[in-house]
Design a protein around this nucleic acid. Sequence first.
DNA 1: TATTGTTATACTCTATAACTATA
DNA 2: TATAGTTATAGAGTATAACAATA
Lengths: 156, 156
Amino acid sequence: MSSWVSKMAKAKPSKQSAAQSDGLLDALVQASFVTMAVLNKIGAENDLSLTQLRVCGILRDRRPRMAGLAAHLGLEKSTMTGLIDRAEKRGLLARAPSAEDGRATEVFLTNEGMKLVERLYLQLKQELSPVMDVLDSSEQRQLQQLLRRMLDSQEG
Amino acid sequence: MSSWVSKMAKAKPSKQSAAQSDGLLDALVQASFVTMAVLNKIGAENDLSLTQLRVCGILRDRRPRMAGLAAHLGLEKSTMTGLIDRAEKRGLLARAPSAEDGRATEVFLTNEGMKLVERLYLQLKQELSPVMDVLDSSEQRQLQQLLRRMLDSQEG
DNA sequence: TATTGTTATACTCTATAACTATA
DNA sequence: TATAGTTATAGAGTATAACAATA
């Protein structure tokens, strides 16, 4: 059996019996954990949780409402309140009442937030480049297209 | 600029100015969030956090010590204590003193934990299959190899 | 002395339930 | 009545600091 959610060293090497699709599954999961570890690290270095980092990334070119954000992230509305509260207190983003719906609140990045997000994106690129650059330019394009096709099938 | 950590609908379509490597970066990050969402959902359905799910996956074929586990996950020792406490109380795993080092504690899955992990792995396979099956068999092999090469370069 | 693990403490993330205001 | 958002509360995840036991 293959290693699933880990690449930690095994005590004993196990036999190679996984089906092909398990190999892709494991690779996908492991790659995700590596990517998430990088995102987590970048967040931690800037006092942002993974969720807050993600919110900032979303706000980069959008101005959603609280409920829309919550739905997109798969979180409860009440969870968003605290999340946005803390980021707002730090000056990264702000709230404003919606012009169309008196009940709704829109969320958007402040100038400081925008500057931070640009910095974080560059940092992300830097930290993942060594991994991506193991592949040559043509392979990178190939990988991107394969991933993109999977993602686009997800009601993209 | 591309969507980075999100595939949420944009208010206004922005211009296509990202370099090629940004495209791969975004695809990688988005694929990771999709994968993590599936893992999170499977965990939630079984009252397991992402971290606990991961610990169970690691314990599938290993018997690490507390410190090794913490180092592998990038967490503090004290965090592991609570994490393992809760899973142990649920009967999923257990602790035993190390034979070689009187200070060390080994962690391993109980029979119940093993049964759960096998079930979770099958569920993960089922939930990610629709996404992976967008690609044909040869493309899947290609994707796996590209990801694997990136992962193996990471001191694998 | 250094390492392994736990305890105590504090803060963030998250969900549920109850509430207010608007549609 | 239904929806948008907040508040109150509780449990889990996480880190820091201090500690006990062993190496």
